[in-house]
Structures are given as structure tokens and as C-alpha cells.
Computed example of a mutant assay.
Amino acid sequence: MGIYQFGQSVSRMFLSTSYKVEVVGKENIPKDGATILCCNHIHNFDPPLLGAYINRQLHYMAKQELFEMPILKGLLPKLGAFPVRRGMSDKQAIRTAMKLLKEGHMIGLFPEGTRSKDGKVGKGLSGAGFFALRTDSTVIPCAIIGPYKSFRPLKLVYGEAIDFSELREQKASAEEATELIMSEIRQLIEKHSIMP
């Protein structure tokens, strides 16, 4: 078992014993090929949750500050993470993501760029739309529906792939593509909301 698979097992064990995790739509994730998972962001545990219950390795953009911590800087790359400088256009992070997608890997993005303080889906940054339009990746909208409270229901939903053919034909902007992604995420949350 590799370090990534070990990390997945630890994450699954922790999440499944801490919360009543329900996973919906795993069949929507392609078995191979360039894939982008785009998800809302409500908690620090979102990245491990997003990748814990699926069979493929997920690569993440993680904030640069995490790679400056003694233990994490050596561990994060082995877990599939790569650094991104927030608040600016990080060309190295973009190149890394493009290379991973070109090689047929799967990356996970949180288009909002930061955690939502009120749990509501905010405005997405243009990066997700850029990758969707500039690559032939399959784009899967995902929704984490919480809250993260001990022994309470926590739902992870993988939606159906988003069709970008019309936006590509229209030569739409990255912002327009991102808004389509965010709209799909909002619809998943509305459709699969947890009853109080």
C-alpha cells in the first residue's frame, strides 16, 4: 500500500467514525482520463473527504503556507498535493495542474478559493473555468453537505459531468465557465440537502 492509499484509509476511518458519511454518485467519476472535481468548500476536512471514498488518486492545489510547515512540506507532495499562492496568478501551479491533466490524472479544485464562513456557496474564481475550457478534461461538480458535527449526517455528492461543448463553441470566458460549474454545485446542494 502506497502513502496515498494509506492516507485514504486513515481519512476514511476517521471520517466514517466521526460523522455519518453518505457518498452519492461515485459512478459518475471516470475510471481513467483527465478529470477535474469541482467542489464547494465549507471545512478544513473537505480535501480528504473529497478523495477518501474513490478509487482514483486525487491531486490537490493546497495553499503555499502548508508547504512551509516542517512535517507537511515532505508529506503533502506524496499525498498528491501541490502548492498554489493565493491572491495572485500562480503560473507554476497552473503549469503543474495542466501537466497533471495532460497526463490523464484527476485534480480536485475548490473554485471559491477559500472556505465559506456561512456554509453558502460563494462566487467561484476563474481558475476552474480556465482548466475546463483549456483542457479536454471531464468536469465533475461535487457538493459537500454538512455541517461537520460529530455523529451527524455528512453527505458527499458527485454529480454528472458538465457539458462544456456549447461554451467552447461560443469561446466563452473562464468566468462564464466557472459560473456554470458553481451553478451545478448549487443545484446538487439543493437536490441533496439533508433534512434537519
Rank of each mutant, 00 (worst) to 15 (best):
G33K: 05
A62T: 02
E176I: 06
A81R: 00
S16W: 13
F14G: 05
V10Y: 06
L125T: 03
S89Q: 13
E190W: 05
V157C: 00
E22F: 05
V24Y: 07
L154T: 00
S193F: 09
P47M: 00
D90C: 09
L156H: 01
D136C: 04
E169V: 10
A177I: 09
C38N: 01
H59I: 07
Y4L: 07
S16L: 06
I185V: 15
S9C: 07
F45E: 08
R186Y: 03
A174S: 15
F82V: 00
M13V: 01
I94V: 15
A177H: 08
M195P: 10
H105N: 14
L100I: 14
L188F: 01
E22K: 12
K63H: 06
I140H: 06
Q187W: 05
I3C: 02
I145W: 01
K31E: 13
I145G: 02
E169C: 04
M195K: 11
R134I: 02
N40T: 00
G159K: 01
A132M: 06
L154M: 07
K102W: 07
A143K: 00
G25C: 10
Y19M: 07
L100P: 01
R12D: 03
G129L: 08
L167F: 12
C38L: 09
G104M: 07
H43V: 04
G74Q: 08
F110L: 13
G146C: 02
E68R: 14
A177N: 05
C142T: 13
R134V: 03
Q57T: 10
L72S: 07
I36T: 03
R86V: 03
K31S: 15
P196S: 12
A93D: 08
N40Q: 06
I29S: 02
I181Y: 14
E65M: 09
E175M: 06
P47L: 01
N55Y: 02
S11W: 04
R186H: 07
G7T: 08
I94M: 14
M182Y: 05
G159Q: 00
F110Q: 07
E175W: 04
M69V: 13
Y148T: 13
F151E: 03
Q5L: 11
D90L: 12
